[in-house]
């Protein structure tokens, strides 16, 4: 119904991208002690001073009032199943530990979905080598005769877990779309770098795009830009960090290719790095060096940029 350029034939598979980020998360006092006590097979809750509300598992803030003043308590490992469902993660139930004022979700184990009824008595099943995770409790199993337990003061609480290692893995399949599609197809098959003219026809936008950022009007015809260009800005990278793609030192550069108006980000190599500051600066002329081997249809097909002599063509 709208003019969206997806009728352009693109036979490129989406561009895969993975983000795999390491974290060290801080659970805080209540959850930190809860996790620490998992190893002792004790379930910890919070009793809030404002009204005596009990939350299991332990919380820093009362779910009802937001109260932050609380005493830690030891909760029983028995409770009632208040609701449940079955997903690809298994049977997930909402469990009300005896003496708690709130439900919490956990796995239901040793039972089939059809065996369960709301109101069933359940008790915790502890895992082997419980560790410092809620999964130290494998889940809760039906236990029709489980006696009703009660909340007790927590004696000699363990030292709180301060940091929980975590990793978030996210996978993407990014669509090329017609403009990036042609750009990277040309890079892959012809080693050509293609932009599109701005809406007023002066110079090329790189990467190409349907609309001119400034005027928000349709961009013009495709145009090949040169593989030489001028450094607009650069820095010498010494920093090391998680997720880095190459070992330092190297040069981060934003390059305006001849014929283009916008930046291409890449590395400049092939120089004496001890003299990087003087050899590469804004205005330095550079040329793309293509990578040998099977082309990938990405910026990685350009191995790096090398310094060449001469002046900025535009100056």
């Amino acid at each position: 119904m709208l003019s969206i350029p997806d009728t352009y034939p693109i036979d490129l598979k989406p561009f895969p991208s993975d983000l795999s980020m390491p974290y060290t998360l801080t659970p805080g006092r209540a959850a930190g002690i809860f996790l620490a006590e998992i190893g002792n097979k004790r379930i910890v809750g919070s009793r809030f001073r404002d009204g005596g509300t009990v939350a299991v598992p332990a919380q820093d803030f009362c779910p009802k009032t937001g109260d932050s003043e609380f005493d830690l308590v030891e909760a029983p490992s028995t409770g009632t199943l208040n609701a449940f469902t079955e997903t690809e993660a298994g049977i997930i139930g909402l469990i009300r530990i005896d003496g708690s004022d709130f439900d919490f979700p956990h796995q239901i184990v040793d039972a089939g979905y059809d065996d369960l009824t709301v109101g069933d008595r359940v008790e915790a099943v502890w895992g082997e080598g419980a560790g410092e995770s809620i999964l130290g409790i494998k889940g809760f199993k039906p236990s029709p005769k489980a006696p009703v337990g009660s909340i007790k003061p927590l004696e000699n609480p363990a030292k709180q877990v301060e940091v929980v290692p975590y990793r978030m893995d996210l996978h993407y399949e990014h669509a090329f779309g017609p403009y990036y599609g042609r750009l990277f197809d040309e890079i892959k098959t012809n080693r050509r770098i293609m932009g599109v003219r701005t809406s007023n026809g002066e110079g090329a936008l790189l990467p190409p795009r349907e609309l001119d950022d400034i005027t928000h009007k349709k961009t013009g015809t495709w145009v090949e830009v040169k593989q030489t260009g001028t450094v607009r800005a650069c820095s010498v990278i010494h920093l090391q960090f998680i997720g880095q793609k190459q070992p330092p030192p190297y040069i981060y550069a934003e390059i305006i290719l001849d014929g283009a108006l916008t930046r291409l980000i890449h590395n400049i190599s092939g120089i004496d790095m001890s003299r990087a500051k003087e050899l590469v600066k804004p205005g330095t002329r550079v040329r793309a060096v293509w990578r040998d081997g099977e082309p990938t249809g990405s910026l990685a097909d350009i191995s790096h940029f090398e310094v060449i002599g001469g002046e900025d063509e535009r100056s």
């Binding site: 998360l25 659970p27 959850a31 809860f34 996790l35 598992p57 609701a83 449940f84 469902t85 079955e86 997903t87 690809e88 993660a89 298994g90 997930i92 909402l94 919490f104 979700p105 956990h106 796995q107 709301v118 995770s133 809620i134 999964l135 889940g139 929980v164 975590y166």
Partner: peptide, 20 residues
Amino acid sequence: PFYQRPVGFDHRAASGIQAQ
């Protein structure tokens, strides 16, 4: 991430329980 995420509680589980 400490109590709910590890046990597999998510929007699907929430929806299933709302439905039940």
